[in-house]
Design a binder for these strands. Sequence first.
DNA 1: GCCGTTTTCGGCCCGACTGTTTTCAGTCG
Length: 580
Amino acid sequence: MKITLENWEIARVLQETADLLEIKGENTFKIRAIRMAADVVESYTESLSDIVYRGSKDLRDVPGIGEGLAKKIHEIATTGDTAERRALFEELPRSLLEILKLPGVGPKKVKAFYDQLKIATVDGLEAAARAQRLRHLPGFGEKTETKILAGIESYRRDQGRYPLWEIEPVAEALLAHLRALPQVQRMEIAGSYRRRRETVADLDILVSCAEAPTVMKHFVAYRQVKSVLLEGPTKTTVVFNSGLQVDLRVVEPESFAAALVYFTGSKNHNIAMRDMAKRQDLKVNEYGVFRLAGANEERLPTPSEKEVYSLLGLAYVPPEMRENTGELERAAQRQLPHLITIKDILGDLHMHTVASDGKNSIMEMAEAAQQRGLRYIAITDHSKSTYVANGLDEKRLLDHIKAIDQVNDTLEGIRVLKGLECDIRPDGQLDIDNEVLAQLDVVLISIHSHMGMPREEMTDRILRAFANPYAHIFAHPTGRLVKQRDAYPIEMERVMEAALHYKVALELDAFPTRLDLNDVYCRMAKERGVKLTIDTDSHMREHLVNVTYGINVARRAWLEKSDVLNTQPVGAFLKSLRHW
DNA sequence: GCCGTTTTCGGCCCGACTGTTTTCAGTCG
């Protein structure tokens, strides 16, 4: 039977294999190779399942994948698992993987607990620690026992990764606290926060200051700090009352740029960059760039991040691109894309009013958009199938069209387009008559019901909707909600092919809980020549600011102005619908 | 297990901090 796995599902099997091999004590470089391959798979913009079934490409052409991993991936794509992983699970209980997730517990400790005390679960470990049985193991002591109990507590309370939009105000407040110190020269939030990932696991704060101890003291005294995990002369780690972990690193001013590159990461970007440095007899670390000459090393000046990259023969790489997904090769060839910015967005094509489930009138939304500098918007209330949102039927929609015309008659400087967010019924038909759709400027189509359909049926349903000549833009294409709801299963390769065929644009819905399409799929669309739109899906005028979260995703997907339809003036934009 | 202007074997990024150690292994990022 043919099974279809998304790339992230294949990546997870590989990561688990790596975890198990690590507990077994296998060669660390082999493990690293598997983890690297898993990361490559997860961000790969072609379906590996598809490649395997079609035989359309040699997996060994993918960077980081050679003979062995190509075989493993083939096996996973066709059977869902590997014989190797099954054998490992015969030997080591699955629950060990959970122990491995505990902070401060790595593969060596997991192995020691299991081999010497037969501990296989987090509960078992907790009981052993409470009974003071861990301290007798060689290399362990009383403090380790205490730390493990604390680690278990934080793991149980841990909410994992936090959405970026939730963390931003927390981060800003902390920066304000630190900025109050006159000794602080430069300060930046680095890590995945700066790379603008949709969620972050912790905050990495970088400060340049000649008096590190003063900054550390001030940091630890912050009112949100609940406990201190590590405290050294240059690095301190604390946990906030909310459970968020925050790292502070203090460096000398001359090292700030190199440290910023290092702490922004990602890890794989750093590894690849340092590897490139080594080939040029250079060394890169968080203190600077050094030229190696025999036993001596000469420190090269790095006043800015741009200099750090430049010394390695690279163009400056924007933080959002630093994921080791090909950006370094492009930087070496001076062929980095010119990433889209918020200023490029001239229109917003997805918003609701009091006519369906919005909080403001057409006029209020238009005025708010105009204040933000937009040149056009589309009012796209729900259609009748979304009855929980008071969706419009044909008659109410026709009245709404008239109301939009009236706003256009009275408002200068912004154009309000007549639109609809039209439901795709389970059979793939749109739920509003074509003769009414024909009177609209912009028709979004989207799925709000029957999300549990099997992958193939769901894909067929979407493709039938694309065939409707009045469908312009497929809104929030996967239906996922960040950390709340997985995407409904679809065959993304087929959806993209059809989008290109019918010239239906795909939406990047910037609403912070959606961010749909995500970064990997947006990049996939760009590579296939499928156009996107970036819209806020606003339900009140205050939501219009959320476009910035869409820009975050777009930049991570390497999108340029030309990839996004609503960067065009309104006339060109309207002509481009179904004709890009 | 991957990879190649040191190539098909022998390398594989680099450093901070902790706890248990008398010089370092484990963990983390």
